[in-house]
Design a protein around this nucleic acid. Structure first.
Lengths: 196, 196, 196, 196
DNA sequence: AATGAATGAGGATTCATTCAT
DNA sequence: GATGAATGAATCCTCATTCAT
């Protein structure tokens, strides 16, 4: 009943190996062995090792962008929207913990055009997020004594860092961590006396 | 007693190349060419390519640990100490921006023993930092409704993320960013009504 | 009874690609894509890539041999026959310029048996031509102070070289070049004082 | 006492194999085995398989161009010069029979830049040759009723064709063939009644 | 007749490291 | 201390061909 077993198997194997030993340290041979397919079959579905890396990113980026659009489309008040966005990125980043591990280590190994494509899509996400913060500042919700770029970086830092420390076997659940980090971030950026 | 030894030239070249194109994408040949030395000369000072990577980390880790010890040794009140520590790690991380770029991307490429050595030293830093937070919580300075591990991760996330976004050519200076991120972090973790 | 069969499309595509980039540099995949058919369809009509090459030669060799036989069969005087033969090979070689390009570069890529088959047929043509020269020499038309093999080679050299330099877009027409090269050749081999 | 045994051995092996089985049908593995060196050693002296091909051409083109310049520099009468040039190209082409075999079959396998370099140098030779013919025509030595391009092609055809038919074991010596082909060519292009 | 996924052997190239000089 | 030629294992990728459908 599987649609395309080969491509899926290869991608799953690649994800596991790239996360465990790094992209550069993983040979195509290892990937196909782990996936139980032949090299030829793999190259029937993917044009290069590079493609595997990109496909891994693609799934994650697409899903997160879709979520972001959906949340913004609900048209709720800024503070509700921003909180929902924060919680969602953190939760999906935990869902894609392996992808994240691979992502942040190995984007620079992508071919130049692909790297630009990835950067473009990440920037789009980033800009939408920054737009929400800007609107919130205009409404007096968030502080303006710190440059917006720093506020935004302060949030994505948490997302970026997740694969480094979070473990599903750890004491906190995905939902708890999402709520906690979001709380820390929003408290930090809240407007208040002497914060513009 | 030479100002510019072969080893220094090689390390500088390696740092630049590793940061620009990645450790795995940089050949020893490229490093020695950039450094203006021969392969034989390099292998006289370094046992392996691995050694170059480790040496890069080593300088940064040693310096940051020394700073941490010095600040703690001053024996100032917790809130003063923690703030100083935060500012210092951020500032030195900016001083070592290239090192950081290489570090976070390529630790996993080190040989197993070396990786453990690096992890051990980073954990030591991390534990000292967590100890400061714990003391502050005991004094009622920092919130306790969020697990300490999450508070600490929330800070190191900022440090970790710096090489990704900060640019010396950007609008903010190193000192400003250090102050701003520290402020966001400390505001986020501050104790308050309903925060334990 | 179809005008444009799969086989024809494939051969046309193969001819163009082989001429443009070489036989070895052209993949079967490229051929079928260019022809607008699938690999399976191609392998239904041709047993191997080798077959494509041979089919290209085959058309040209068959046609030239048929022409030769027809001209000889007319039973005209030697000098008329030889001139007609020369003009015809040159003209048909220009008609089959792409075939010639491929031919002279890639015969050695054919399977051994096929290579022999091609050689056999070329030699047959060559021998008939040499026979005409021999008869002409017996009649005192052509010089005998140069070995007959050299005289014959001197002619086929011109034919062989056509794909290298002749262009339909060039200043001379096919008919002109055929007449001119024939003239140069026949003048060169003509009997005369001190030429046996 | 050998200067660089490795490079020479490799080149010699490559020449033999390329001539016998074709460039595309010869693997780098075969070349190094035949040369008795390791693959790594070969790649220390040549950047690519392509390089081997180019080096083979290079030797031949350089030598022939040098000869041409030397002969022209003697400043003898046109008819003496042209005859000497013809004889020389034919003789050196026989000396480099294997190189020629490889050359004419495989130029199109070179990388684009290298192909242009080869073409440039061949054209230079060709142009000098055409210049000699032009001068001879001006002096009334050579016919003008046939376009100069065709006259020149008629000569290079012979050179081009040599590797296809000439054999050192054949009945004629290099010197004989050179004299005979030159004679056929010069007779063919000589001025005369009704030839402009 | 036709499809196109899958095979599997082979190919060119890279590169960290060694070692005789 | 320093050289750079040589090693040899590993890597990514290509491709003609087959075969179940």
């Amino acid at each position: 009943m599987k649609q395309t077993s080969v491509a899926d198997d290869v991608l799953r194997a690649a994800l596991g190996l790239f996360a465990a030993q790094g992209y550069a340290n993983t040979s195509v041979q290892q990937v196909v062995e782990q996936a139980g397919v032949t090299k030829g079959a793999m190259y029937h579905y993917f044009q290069s090792k590079d493609d595997l890396l990109f496909a891994i990113y693609d799934r994650m980026l697409t899903l997160q962008t879709d979520h972001l659009d959906a949340i913004v489309a609900r048209g709720e008040p800024i503070e509700v929207t921003l909180r929902a966005v924060c919680v969602d990125v953190i939760e999906t980043s935990i869902d894609f913990l392996l992808e994240g591990t691979v992502f942040f280590r190995s984007v620079h190994m992508l071919s130049q055009p692909r790297q630009q494509e990835v950067t473009r899509r990440r920037r789009a996400y980033h800009d939408t997020f920054a737009g929400l913060v800007e609107k919130g500042q205009a409404e007096g919700l968030y502080r303006t004594d710190v440059p917006r770029g720093v506020l935004v970086a302060h949030f994505f830092a948490d997302v970026h860092y997740l694969p480094t420390w979070f473990s599903p076997e750890g004491p906190e659940t995905k939902e708890q961590v999402a709520a906690q980090l979001t709380e820390l971030f929003l408290t930090g950026i809240a407007a208040g006396p002497g914060r513009g």
